[in-house]
């Protein structure tokens, strides 16, 4: 159970996790493909703030992402792409706290352009700046 008081806005020195339940988004060299950072149509890219979470708690939240897929097809959590708020800011995007019941650390990366090539360029930059952390099998 993860419980917090009122959460502050996302700070510049924070780390954000984008959980990956799609194996093809991870390259053989353990880097992450741009696909993991392409925004959905509403242009709110969901991430989880590391703030105050242990590794175990982070993976617990990540597992809910994989569980959402496994309701439709076989799925597992492969890992997470960690990216700093500073790297997000370099692309002129920003992170905004959007707590939800199951994940008080939930946030959105917002400010995406509508233009798809520009989205891809930003996603490539975020992917290049991100560190992939593999989920160890149980």
């Amino acid at each position: 159970m993860i419980a917090f008081g009122p959460l502050p806005q996302v700070a510049a020195d924070e780390l954000l996790a984008r959980f990956v339940a799609v194996e093809k988004w991870i390259r053989a060299d353990n880097t992450i493909r741009q696909d993991a950072f392409i925004p959905p149509r509403d242009l709110n890219l969901s991430v989880t703030r590391h703030r105050l979470l242990s590794e175990e708690q982070l993976w617990e939240i990540g597992q809910t992402v994989a569980n959402a897929v496994s309701q439709k097809q076989p799925a597992r959590l492969f890992g997470r792409a960690d990216v700093s708020v500073a790297a997000v800011a370099k692309t002129a995007l920003r992170a905004e706290a959007v707590p939800v019941a199951a994940n008080p650390n939930h946030a959105h990366i917002i400010g995406w352009p509508q233009d798809k090539p520009k989205q891809k360029f930003i996603a490539q930059q975020l992917a290049a700046a991100a560190t992939f952390v593999a989920k160890k099998p149980l």
Partner: peptide, 9 residues
Amino acid sequence: EAGWDGYGA
């Protein structure tokens, strides 16, 4: 299917 990435894709 919608939501194939766990995030509402």
